[in-house]
Design a protein around this nucleic acid. Structure first.
Length: 646
RNA sequence: GCCGACGUAGCUCAGGGGUAGAGCGUUUCCUUGGUAAGGAAGAGGUCACGGGUUCAAUUCCCGUCGUUGGCUCCA
């Protein structure tokens, strides 16, 4: 007998060799019907894997993340089999489950499938699934495994196996299909009732662009057809919140091929919204002891050679600007920090002056790869809400924590409560990617982790995500389609002070190096507005939204009164406009609803008589007929309730 | 930059070897209206751009540009 401990702490004594499925049966028939995956002592196993020693068992169903993972990974096997049958001679590589579904990377040779082939692949995969093949794991010796794939002329699998140890190599079979696999499958293919191939994309073998590009087939599957339908509908809904669509509909920004790729043009409403965001942050920054500086859009090439940016990015950037003078070159600034270092250097400093905090809404230009450009989230010209804090080593922890507070205030004020805090550290195996000495890196990384811990942040550490000059604390937010974007960032930097030879006079009358904190709570105005659009679906907070109210005269007879009301609204600093088109009230309401204007003020005979406005809230709520003063209070109360000061 | 897809009216999209269509928007007229679409008429397109095939190309082929889903990159 062995002892199996379940997640609730209860212990089941079962015969050696009992399977997770059998344990589930002992718990309940329902669980046994639904269990599709299991972990034993934290190792993913199959539901049919015999348990041979004491341990902790967790059973998973479709409703668990682990269950979905097994489900989708198993589905990738089924799709791989379908692909092999439809495209004989292809070479399979890897096929993991991902956050939503799975993919399989395949070397198709000559005939890469495209979206016209998806239906055929889905049909074939579903046929296989319906045949209810069991997934069976078996151990294979390294030499047998190598021989199997050498015979199939699959160099990718051979490469994978060569990096594995003999004794830890397993194959998974189902139907006539065999794949190198470490496990984690559902009991049989029959559970998969719906399969959708979502798209194909190029993906480099082992994620290295020097390697051959394979075709990545993305798919998703479900235990019920209904769930697939719901998922596809959800995707459609998400597309409606796409900032590129909303930005156009709401008249916030645009792009022009003639101006250039990735160079956003902010339209009046977008520019005004952006200005309100900037003012919001400026106000908080002022309280936090920041001073605004202004620096030019270009700088001598030498400036970036000093900072190290030129060596790192010079080749792939906008190329140097020539002047009539010989041997003179300027770069469009890709960063504000070198300029701010020079601002710092304009005067000698005492330790009593520190910390010094320079802030600037600095527009920078980066020649991003064309394939990377994406709406407002990845552009070639953008404005950072940048600031650089120059402080002593002793002040670093305190300053860093203050920046965390400011960043959390910014994110919280705008309703971003679902961010992911990420400590981005260097990759120890790739020292060539970073500048500066190791001791400072260690100090910087530790400083960030300490501050994050002391602030009680729930953070994850991401190796290799640091900037070339220092580690960062990044605030990641998901877009409508679930893609992660870095918004706020706080970075500790010992390197630029060194390179720019920054100093201050200490209490010991000696010269010391300050530490630099780079920080941008929004990240960039462009990306922030994009993510805010997707999060709010265009229903911005009242203080931020371009148009707070729209006056809807019932007929042309009431236009004059409407104009008078508009005037009072403007005197009360309410952003409003009049829809005086020759249309019915119903139509005007419909369009104001579609434009997501928070308040619709209907004015007709009744209102004119009582000198009021009839207030309808976006969404349909009726506030009744009230005076302009009352309405103005309504608006300012709501703004005060949502816009807390720092 | 790489792989795939796409590019038709301001927007959303249909069409297809014989020089184009819908809905919404817009303009004009009628209507003067009460909480999510009142009615009528009109304007608007070198079918992204450049080549090629063809008697004929918006349609087929190639290239360029742009957009897009990924990969790589992201100071």
């Amino acid at each position: 007998m062995i002892q199996v401990t379940l997640p609730d702490g209860s212990i089941k004594k079962v015969d050696k060799g009992t399977t997770p499925f059998e344990v589930a049966q002992q718990i309940s028939e329902g669980l046994a019907r639904n269990v599709i995956s299991a972990k034993y002592d934290d190792i993913t196993i199959e539901t049919k894997t015999p348990l041979n020693h004491d341990g902790k068992l967790v059973l998973y169903t479709w409703n668990d993340a682990e269950g979905k993972k097994a489900f989708w990974h198993s589905s990738s096997h089924v799709v791989a089999q379908a692909l092999e049958e439809l495209y004989p001679g292809i070479k399979l590589t890897i096929g993991p489950a991902i956050e939503n579904g799975f993919y399989y990377d395949v070397d198709f040779g000559e005939h890469t499938p495209s979206d016209k082939d998806f239906a055929t692949i889905e049909k074939k995969a579903l046929e296989i699934a319906r045949e209810k093949h069991d997934f069976r794991m078996r151990e294979v010796s390294k030499s047998d495994a190598l021989n199997y794939y050498k015979e199939k002329d699959n160099t990718y699998k051979v490469e994978l196996i060569e990096n594995l140890e003999d004794g830890e190599i397993t194959f998974c079979d189902h139907s006539s299909f065999t794949d190198l696999c470490r496990g984690g499958h559902i009991p049989n293919t029959g559970i998969i009732k719906a399969i959708k191939i979502l798209n194909v994309a190029g993906a480099y073998w082992r994620g290295d662009e020097n390697n051959k590009q394979l075709t990545r087939v993305y798919g998703i599957s479900f235990p019920k057809q209904k769930e697939l339908t719901a998922y596809l509908e959800m995707l459609e809904e998400a597309k409606k919140r796409d900032h590129r669509k909303l930005g156009r509909e709401l008249g916030l920004f645009t792009f022009s091929q003639k101006v250039g790729q990735g160079l956003p043009l902010w339209l009046p409403k977008g520019a005004a919204l952006r200005e309100r965001l900037e003012n919001f942050l400026k106000k908080a920054q002022k309280k936090a002891g920041y001073e605004m500086v202004v620096t030019p859009h270009i700088g001598q090439k030498e400036l970036y050679i000093t900072s190290g940016h030129y060596a790192k990015y010079g080749e792939d950037s906008f190329q140097p600007i020539q002047t009539p003078k010989e041997d003179e070159e300027f770069l469009l600034k890709p960063m504000n920090c070198p300029h701010h270092c020079e601002v710092y250097k304009s005067s000698p400093w005492s330790y009593k002056d520190l910390p010094i905090r320079y802030a600037e809404f600095g527009t920078v230009y980066r020649y991003e790869q064309s394939g990377e450009l994406h709406g407002l989230t990845r552009v070639r010209g953008f404005t950072q809400d940048d600031a650089h804090i120059f402080c002593t080593n002793d002040q670093l922890n305190e300053e860093f924590k203050k920046v965390i507070d400011l960043t959390l205030y910014v994110l919280g004020s705008l309703g971003f409560d679902n961010f992911r805090a990420q400590v981005s550290v260097r990759d120890l195996e790739k020292p060539e990617k970073y500048i500066g000495d190791v001791a400072n890196w260690e100090k910087a990384e530790q400083a960030i982790i300490d501050a994050a811990k002391e602030k009680g942040l729930d953070y994850v550490i991401e190796t290799g995500e640091a900037a070339f000059y220092g580690p960062k604390l990044d605030f990641m937010i998901k877009d409508a389609l679930g893609r992660n974007w870095q918004l706020g960032t706080i970075q500790v930097d010992y390197n630029l002070p060194e390179r720019f030879e920054l100093s201050y006079k200490g209490s010991d009358n000696e010269s010391h190096r300050p530490v630099m904190i780079h920080r941008a709570p929004f990240g960039s105005m462009e990306r922030f507005v994009a993510l805010l659009l997707e999060h709010t679906g265009g229903n911005f907070p009242l203080w931020l939204i371009p148009e707070q109210a729209i006056l809807l005269p019932v007929s042309e007879k009431h236009e004059k009164y409407a104009k008078k009301v508009l005037n009072s609204l403007e005197n009360n600093e309410i952003r409003a406009l009049i829809d005086n088109r020759n249309e019915t009230v119903g139509k005007k309401i419909r369009e104001a609803e579609l434009k997501k204007i928070p308040f619709m003020l209907i004015v007709g005979e009744n209102e004119e008589g009582s000198q009021t406005v009839s207030v309808r809230r976006h969404g349909g709520e009726d506030h009744g007929s009230i005076t302009v003063e009352q309405f103005s209070d309504l608006v300012s109360n709501e703004i005060n309730a949502t816009l807390k000061s720092f």
